[in-house]
Design a protein around this nucleic acid. Structure first.
Length: 213
DNA sequence: ACATTAATTGTGT
DNA sequence: ACACAATTAATGT
């Protein structure tokens, strides 16, 4: 565990802190599709990502959902950081996008570490900033880009977090994550196929390249 | 191996 | 948005 921590977080944390994380944290490995947290659940741990990716979703009142952003290696969840004080319910839903390995730190530790370790303070502020920027980026996409552009951005993200040109999703799943209808996605994908950007198959999409855009 | 059903995708209105 | 056809995968017998 120490070794994995160091390879991912040595740039951020001092030696003492890494050892303490190793002492109080627990390793958790979850399979693809695992629901890490639902809206309304209490946050008791702060996750540090070691491997894999997590998608963060926002749900609206009646079953509509929207993908906010992906968390990748070296990231942590900004929601948990707002909840240092007291018991707070999660505002978001976190689902493992790939098989994922993470360290769970009890949130009680966060407060004392903030006082004790400078590197921890920096890390928390830094992560908070990065998350906020990503969220802004997503907001911009939703506000200013048409659906065809959003779909392209989505495909790029997928390829990145999976490190794979093959996207194993159905049109319906993509539609849910972008909060639109399946038919719209099917049509847009079809035109992307004509532009030689993707190759459509049942249950998966092969990304050729975004050069022809 | 075959039939039935369900899920996925394509297309027209 | 809705409806429907076509294709493919999954399941049972």
């Amino acid at each position: 565990m120490i070794h994995e921590l160091k390879s991912n977080y040595r740039q951020f944390f001092e030696e003492d802190l890494i050892e303490e994380i190793a002492r109080v944290g627990t390793i958790k490995e979850v399979p693809q599709g695992f629901h890490l947290i639902e809206i309304g659940q209490y946050v008791r741990y702060m996750p540090l990502l070691l491997e894999g990716a997590i998608k963060i979703m926002r749900d609206d009142h009646d079953g509509e959902e929207l993908l906010l952003y992906f968390l990748e290696k070296g990231d942590t969840c900004a929601m948990t950081m707002t909840c240092c004080m007291g018991e707070t319910k999660s505002e978001i839903r976190a689902i493992a996008e790939t098989d994922t390995k993470l360290i769970m730190i009890p949130i009680e530790k966060m407060e004392s570490w903030t006082v004790k370790y400078k590197s921890w303070r920096n890390f928390v502020f830094e992560s908070y900033h990065v998350r906020l920027m990503e969220l802004l980026e997503t907001v911009d996409k939703i506000a200013f880009l048409k659906m065809d552009q959003r779909l392209v951005e989505y495909l790029k993200d997928k390829v990145k977090v999976h490190e794979d040109q093959i996207i194993k999703s159905t049109h319906q799943e993509i539609a849910y994550e972008l909060n639109t209808s399946r038919v719209v996605i099917s049509r847009l994908l079809k035109t992307l196929e004509h532009k030689k950007v993707v190759e459509l198959n049942r249950n998966y999409i092969k990304v050729i390249g975004f050069d022809h855009l």
